[in-house]
């Protein structure tokens, strides 16, 4: 065998690939489900927190700031291990999927809250005053006047952050979630061949390259138009 043949045999072995691609495909489905659940719940929760924060109740805001700070300072993997291995000891059994979903949702919510809050603050005070003077209530001003302008500013940083957190679904492999990386490493161990791992990596790249491009497009589309 030439060196090239040895290489393709170890990394792109068609026989091994034919056996294991359905498993990887199953992993792709799980990764997508996990990612979708995290993105929807995380952004919704983060937005809700930012809205609550704009009412400026001191005690509640203190809690929100603590929540956002702690979840932005902690590595998600630490939290995942803490929930997955810690909670069963006090009587809660959490599946790996639930643990990863919960942690990533909370992390995304923390970042979303900070970004949306910065957006709300960046809207000119005059907008508040003008809206209130037309007779809109505080809540109406927030919903109809402030948020539409704030959200526009938050789209690029929020998109990038969401992409970064979605990639963390790969952490699920550590707690036995059957997502792409887990299926790929298991298949690699069974087959004694690196091809499934390569296929898994390719699956990730195929999933995320379009998303990275989408993020870049969003960045340009919503960029500050400088005069």
């Amino acid at each position: 065998m030439t060196a090239f043949e040895r290489f393709t045999d170890a990394f792109f072995n068609t026989e091994v690939l034919a056996t294991y691609w359905p498993v990887i495909a199953k992993g792709v489905v799980v990764t997508c489900q996990l990612a979708a659940a995290v993105v929807v719940c995380g952004i919704a929760m983060g937005m809700a927190l930012a809205i609550v924060r704009s009412y400026r109740f001191k005690a509640i805001n203190f809690l929100i700031v603590c929540f956002a700070d702690i979840l932005r300072a902690l590595p998600p993997l630490v939290l995942i291990l803490l929930l997955y291995f810690g909670l069963p000891n006090v009587g809660f059994n959490l599946s790996g999927f639930l643990a990863v979903w919960l942690v990533l949702t909370l992390v995304l919510a923390a970042f979303t809250e900070e970004i949306v809050w910065a957006g709300i603050l960046s809207v000119n005070k005059g907008q508040w005053q003008a809206a209130r003077s037309t007779g809109l209530s505080f809540t109406q001003t927030l919903i109809y006047v402030i948020l539409p302008q704030a959200v526009r500013l938050t789209v690029p940083p929020l998109t990038n952050r969401t992409i970064a957190i979605t990639k963390n679904t790969a952490l699920g492999t550590v707690v036995g979630v059957g997502e792409i990386l887990n299926e790929a490493t298991t298949a690699q161990a069974f087959s004694g061949n690196a091809s499934p791992l390569m296929l898994g990596a390719i699956a990730y790249v195929m999933l995320f390259v379009p998303i990275v491009y989408f993020g870049r497009w969003i960045e340009n589309r919503f960029a500050w138009k400088r005069a």
Binding site: F11, K167, N168, T169, A170, L171, T173, I180, L181, T185, Q188, A194, L197, M198, G200, A201, Y204, V205, F208, V209, I211, V212
Partner: peptide, 17 residues
């Protein structure tokens, strides 16, 4: 490419691939 691939995947490919 390296922005698209999750760091953990990269790490495992390097370490066990």
């Amino acid at each position: 490419f390296f922005r698209a691939i999750p760091p953990l995947v990269l790490l495992i490919v390097i370490h066990s691939g």
